[in-house]
Every structure is written in structure tokens, then in C-alpha cells.
């Protein structure tokens, strides 16, 4: 009976461990995404460029502006497409306006395609780092400063950067991760 107790405790421990492991997968998944660029998810922190410019290559960069659930904001990319050299600093401008009569809070979510390009896309400044609070009918110009890593794989000729504004007005200020 003693050995039963020990085994049961071990199995309960394993169960609890796997339950916690399920939660641990959330940050692990983020780490995994950062390393592999899975899903084109980008780290939301600024990164310095190295200063070397590779003029032998020119990459087309496209910009897409979306609002989720047709959130009633007018959000457009002023620069639809530009050509940059890896390592070069560039800037893209967007226009955003709250079309409603109430104050709203929006958060822009970034995604890069092809996903293999995500980890070579460095943003030094971006409106997506912060939530945007817009008053009724308020309009605003926002921008992103970025550079492409010189290590960007040769096969990538065109990169698309997409921003999707999500309405987080009702969301509690504490986010899960």
C-alpha cells in the first residue's frame, strides 16, 4: 500500500505538471515564434539597426491597413509600397481616424508575410508599440520606422507588413501575456 501512495503522488504530480505545462506553452510559444518567425508575429520592442546597408539588393515592402470586425475607424496606409535596401532606415506613414462620437482605444497588431521575413524586419519606432486613444472624430497621422536585416534570405523579394487595429476599448487594462 505504501508503494501505491508513492505512485499515486507521482502521477498526481505529473498531472499537475502537465496542467502547468499547458500554461507554460503560452510563453514558450512566443519564444518559439520569436526564433522561427512562425506566423509572422513580431516582437513589440524597438531594435537598433547595425548601420550596414546592402545596396546590391532592393526589397519591395508593402503596407496593409486593416480594422478588425470592421471597427469604425478609418485606417489607411499612405505608403502602399516602397523599395528599400537591407540595412537602410525607412519610414512608412498611416492615417487613422475615429469615426464615432465616443472615445475609443485601439491596438494595432502587426503581422509580416512571408513569415520567414518576420525576424529580419526590425522596427525602431512604431505606433503599434502603444495603444492608440482617439477621441470622437479625432484624426491622427502615425508612422513606423523600420529597417530590414542584411541577413534577410535571398529568396525573399517582397515583404508585406500588415497592421490590424483591434478595438480594445472594453478590454480590461490587464492583458494576459
Amino acid at each position: 500500500m505504501k508503494s501505491n501512495r508513492k505512485l499515486i503522488l507521482q502521477l498526481c504530480g505529473a498531472t499537475l505538471g502537465m496542467f502547468l505545462f499547458g500554461f507554460a506553452l503560452v510563453p514558450l510559444y512566443d519564444v518559439f515564434c520569436d526564433i522561427t518567425g512562425l506566423n509572422g508575429k513580431l516582437e513589440l520592442v524597438a531594435k537598433k539597426s547595425t548601420g550596414v546597408i546592402d545596396t546590391s539588393r532592393a526589397i519591395k515592402v508593402q503596407f496593409i491597413a486593416n480594422t478588425n470586425e470592421s471597427m469604425p475607424w478609418d485606417f489607411v496606409a499612405k505608403d502602399v509600397e516602397m523599395t528599400v535596401h537591407p540595412g537602410e532606415n525607412a519610414r512608412a506613414d498611416f492615417f487613422v481616424q475615429n469615426l464615432t462620437n465616443e472615445q475609443m482605444v485601439g491596438q494595432a497588431i502587426v503581422s509580416v508575410s512571408p513569415s520567414i521575413g518576420a525576424k529580419y524586419f526590425h522596427k525602431t519606432q512604431c505606433f503599434c508599440f502603444d495603444r492608440q486613444v482617439l477621441n470622437a472624430k479625432q484624426a491622427q497621422d502615425v508612422s513606423v520606422l523600420f529597417s530590414l536585416d542584411t541577413d534577410l534570405p535571398e529568396s525573399v523579394k517582397k515583404i508585406t507588413l500588415s497592421y490590424t487595429f483591434f478595438d480594445i476599448t472594453d478590454l480590461q487594462p490587464v492583458a494576459a501575456n
Binding site: 496542467f19 502547468l20 505545462f21 499547458g22 500554461f23 503560452v26 510559444y29 515564434c33 506566423n39 508575429k41 513589440l44 478588425n68 491596438q107 497588431i109 490590424t164 483591434f166 478595438d167 480594445i168 478590454l171 480590461q172 490587464v174 492583458a175 494576459a176 501575456n177
Partner: peptide, 24 residues
Amino acid sequence: GTVTMMLTDIHFGTSFFDAGGGGD
């Protein structure tokens, strides 16, 4: 664990699976 995350997403304002809150 997964359904618990769904539960907190639905009722307690977390964003494990909601891109708008930083989830996926």
C-alpha cells in the same frame, strides 16, 4: 488548461487567444 484559458478569455478579460489583447 486550454479550456481554462478559454474560460478566462470569455469571462475574466484575459487575451490568450485574442490577437487584439496580444494573444494568438
